[in-house]
Design a protein around this nucleic acid. Sequence first.
DNA 1: TTCATGTGTAAGTGAAGACTTACAGGCGGG
DNA 2: CCCGCCTGTAAGTCTTCACTTACACATGAA
Lengths: 108, 108
Amino acid sequence: MNSEELLAFLAAVGHAQRLRIIKELASGTLYVSELARRLGVSRPLLYMHLERLEKAGLVVGRLELSDDGKALKYFELAPFDVQLNVDTILAAARQDGASETGQAGQAE
Amino acid sequence: MNSEELLAFLAAVGHAQRLRIIKELASGTLYVSELARRLGVSRPLLYMHLERLEKAGLVVGRLELSDDGKALKYFELAPFDVQLNVDTILAAARQDGASETGQAGQAE
DNA sequence: TTCATGTGTAAGTGAAGACTTACAGGCGGG
DNA sequence: CCCGCCTGTAAGTCTTCACTTACACATGAA
């Protein structure tokens, strides 16, 4: 994880609404409209946030067909675990220059 | 650490400039003007960021008098270490309602 | 006194992003 | 056909926040 990815991650989580989304999804997968109702948030707004969370790798969405033929966009939490301290940040910065040496290390 | 504090922390770190400030301060304490020069940032702007970092508890500043009588505002990193995953976030949320029971637990 | 260093803040500009309203569909059922 | 549910996205508004310029003030040295 380099600086850019770390930043995207932190900026994604560092927002009240998105934190709420994570909390809600923690209890299980939901589709967008249902999630919007639970959070009391407009669907387009929720879309924006989900998009951002997905880009940062915090959630993943998939389109599914329900029994009665309706298309439902389900979102679920992606497992993430980032230790945040000075060393972590410096380590991320060190990755920036390093041109992907080593054959595809662990976790991204 | 409750949701509010966690959010302040994440929002503080989730910004490119402030991440740079942390990196720079990682190598040692600096006073504002010097830090501004190193980062190539205007001093008032740096002030804003430092203020935010200080509120979130990431840095601490103290005013000192140099040998030649000049007042220098030094900033240094405060030790921080936050594990960021779903459980951590849910744990923070759980603290929100809990009205400070238990006599002053560890770390804030 | 003037110049160079520093702290601190006020006030304005500008861009980013959060949020809304409004629309384009698709499907099933009355 | 017209509702009810859903997915998408476009196009605005509006607020927040990043950032600049400009000032007031203090000190030590020339």
